[in-house]
Write a protein that binds this DNA or RNA. Structure first.
Lengths: 207, 207
DNA sequence: AGTGTTTCCTATCGTTCGTTACGAAACTCT
DNA sequence: AGAGTTTCGTAACGAACGATAGGAAACACT
């Protein structure tokens, strides 16, 4: 049995020889660029600077390493959920979500596009559960945005005649599409204009 | 040297024992669902009912088989280009493009989503040329739509103040996003409402 | 019947995949 | 110093990958 010691300060055994978090970051960048299945373990060992047995000991198998990378991707200080919650209005929530997406999809030191939108869009049957996991994350973001819109309707911020499902779906569709446009080489400036054009679909508050 | 005989009626050799076009259709469906790299040759032989040497003899290697499948996908009687060209107005071009996309992405006997949007979004470095080929097709569709919008501006159908690049980019982004939404399980009815919501971004002709 | 031509399938190629025994190495504690 | 514990790299595992050599099979023509 193991004593309930602090995991931060280990008392015995060989000390860790590589930064778990930095290596996971490299793995995330690789999955981000090439996707889950197209990223091989030899790619990962090369980028992380670690041999494959160390990867298995530190993170588990490839699938769990990928899910850890996804967790790191969505678990930053500012998340889709926080953007939606912190916005003053539902319209701001959508606009801020789009703007943050554009910024995140066109970072200078990150791959173009969105990891959630591109790393497991099409995959083999063996990766169906990974695909479903990302789809679940996407749907939860869309549901959260839709709830924010419905809340705006309830408080009279938006007219009751709007199609909240379609409105949230449109924003989500644009976000996914921005990822593909970014991957196809579109610049940040162009994507910001596309996001602005998409916001023109937002219903007028006086209706 | 070979005489210039009609390729439809061969004169010598063992007759063909499987329908090239039907087998290619099965391959297209498989690439559509699982993508280029995640579809293995054993998957293809099982679905096409043909052994791998026959595939290589008939279509070339896996890459050329995929490109033939893409050709079949985009080469139907009604293409994105024809939809844009046949529309009465630029607005109709965008609306018809969105509607046709939704119908195509939610077919009963085809995989959900768009082959162009999902089969090679993220892939290994070995498939970078395939990825670039699909990106080129996507960009050409976007460029054609943008030219149609610019033409509408020139003939006074739309105001000169609009951002044609952003407008075409928005429609393309929504199309890519509709593909992901379809893959995530959205129904045709929901996607049609999303497309309708997206068209609300279209600028008013009187401006 | 026999020859020429093309397509078919059986079997297998070398490579890469994800994964894992296994023992040496590096620490703490007695 | 020696025992205990954990992590490290070397080497290799079986399975699946894309691709191909080689010969049998099925036709047209002589």
């Amino acid at each position: 049995m193991k004593e309930s010691t602090s995991p931060l300060l280990r008392k015995t055994g060989r000390p860790l020889s590589f930064d778990r978090d930095a290596a996971l970051h490299q793995a995330m960048l690789l999955f981000w660029r090439h996707g889950y299945e197209a990223t091989s373990l030899s790619d990962l060992t090369a980028a992380m600077g670690v041999t494959s047995p160390s990867i298995y000991a530190a993170y588990g198998d490839k699938k769990r390493l990928f899910l850890s990378a996804v967790e790191r991707y969505v678990g930053g200080p500012v998340t889709a959920r926080s953007i939606i919650d912190d916005a003053a209005t539902a319209r701001d929530a959508a606009a801020n979500l789009l703007q943050a997406s554009v910024i995140g999809f066109t970072g200078a030191d990150t791959p173009p596009g969105c990891l959630l939108a591109s790393s497991a869009i099409s995959c083999s049957a063996a990766a169906a559960d990974v695909q479903a996991e990302l789809a679940s994350i996407r749907r939860s973001i869309e549901a959260h945005l839709r709830l924010r819109i419905e809340h705006a309707v309830e408080i009279g911020e938006m007219p009751a005649s709007i199609d909240t499902v379609a409105l949230a779906g449109h924003i989500m569709a644009v976000i996914q599409g921005l990822s593909t446009l970014a991957r196809d080489g579109a610049t940040r400036e162009k994507l910001l204009r596309v996001a602005s054009a998409a916001m023109a679909a937002w219903p007028d508050s006086s209706a």
